[in-house]
């Protein structure tokens, strides 16, 4: 037993070292290869444009994956929030109402997922796949086939600037939002009974059921919570780009799953966790931003990200298998 526990600890440390080492190497490489990488301007851009949005979505994905499921419809939640927010603004409604309605639309997507998974007992993969299809149709139908909506007129600028470009005590608002989301999900997942129950459902759903955990109810909260976080990302996204581009949320899907699983590799229990996910997001964001500065085009970035996620998964599952 003792040697077993020792070996597992060793493996956990090894994969943590591998991911942190890879992160440090990448930062060092980009700092040398692209002089502009470590400048304050680029780091600010990296944080606000690459990290915040992905991190908020990935936090939702972390909740879902911790519960043993997967959410393929994160993009739909992001898009629906963004769409309702922008459409209401364009129709002349007050900004706070538009924000609330946008978040409400995301909650609706989450409730649909929750109902399908807990009431109709559809597996999370298929349920969220179905919602992804339906979400695409809804967006195409509402936008005449996928026409973006741009709100570039000056009357909308104050709203967008208040959300995406303002700052409090020198900290940009999106970063404050991210910190709040991080703190909330960290507390919920790692410091409450609910979080431990979610982890139990994720590890052994049968045992969780027989232990008297209200599995469907807790799962419903997980999917609604994840959708809410995606809704926040959607509002931030459309405020940053001052527009709604249909089906743009899907771009987060692979990155959010990748970041969450990079996070699990560095956790000693191989469980999804908030800090691990954050490191995964940082790793992906650094690679994207760095490859751009080094001069790789968008297409090669996609290959690079795919290869990176593949390697991390290979190391993680390879080490796990040796246990």
């Amino acid at each position: 037993m003792a040697t077993n526990a020792f070996r597992r600890l060793d493996t956990g440390r090894l994969s943590t070292l591998a991911v942190v080492g890879a992160f440090a190497l990448l930062v060092a490489f980009f700092a040398l290869a692209a002089p502009s990488f470590l400048t304050a301007g680029n780091l600010y851009n990296l944080l606000v444009n690459n990290v915040v949005l992905l991190a908020v979505v990935a936090l939702g994905m972390t909740l879902v994956i911790a519960s043993g499921g997967i959410d393929l419809s994160v993009g739909v939640s992001v898009d629906m929030a963004s769409m309702v927010f922008i459409m209401l603004l364009a129709a002349g409604y007050a900004a706070p109402l538009a924000v609330l309605a946008g978040l409400g639309a995301a909650l609706l997507v989450g409730s649909l997922n929750a109902a399908l998974i807990t009431r109709l007992r559809i597996s999370p993969f298929l349920a969220t796949l179905g919602v992804l299809f339906i979400g695409q149709s809804v967006q195409r139908l509402s936008t005449g086939g996928g026409q973006p909506i741009y709100l570039v007129r000056a009357e909308f600028a104050p709203t967008f600037d208040a959300i995406a470009r303002s700052s409090l005590l020198g900290v940009p608002t999106p970063v404050i939002v991210l910190v709040l989301c991080l703190a909330a999900v960290y507390l919920v997942l790692h410091r409450t009974v609910f979080g431990r129950q979610v982890a139990a459902i994720g590890a052994k759903p049968g045992v969780a059921w027989y232990s008297g955990i209200r599995v469907p109810f807790q799962l419903a909260k997980v999917y609604v919570g994840a959708a809410f976080l995606c809704g926040i990302a959607g509002i931030l996204l459309s405020s940053t780009v001052k527009s709604y581009v249909p089906m743009s949320g899907n771009a987060f899907l692979l990155d959010a799953i990748g970041a969450t699983f990079i996070g699990t590799t560095i956790s000693r229990e191989r469980r999804p966790g908030v800090l691990g996910t954050l490191l995964g997001v940082a790793l992906l964001a650094v690679v994207k931003n760095g490859l751009l500065l080094v001069g790789w085009n968008f297409y090669w970035q996609q290959v690079g990200i795919g290869v990176l996620v593949f390697l991390v998964l290979a190391v993680s599952f390879g080490l796990h298998r040796r246990d």
């Binding site: 692979l254 990748g258 297409y299 290959v303 593949f310 599952f317």
Partner: peptide, 23 residues
């Protein structure tokens, strides 16, 4: 060979293949 979950492995490979197509 590596024992990666098919869902995750093929998701990463999907990105690589799509990126290579674009390049």
């Amino acid at each position: 060979g590596l024992g990666i979950l098919p869902l995750l492995a093929t998701l990463a490979v999907m990105n690589v293949a799509a990126g290579l197509e674009l390049t």
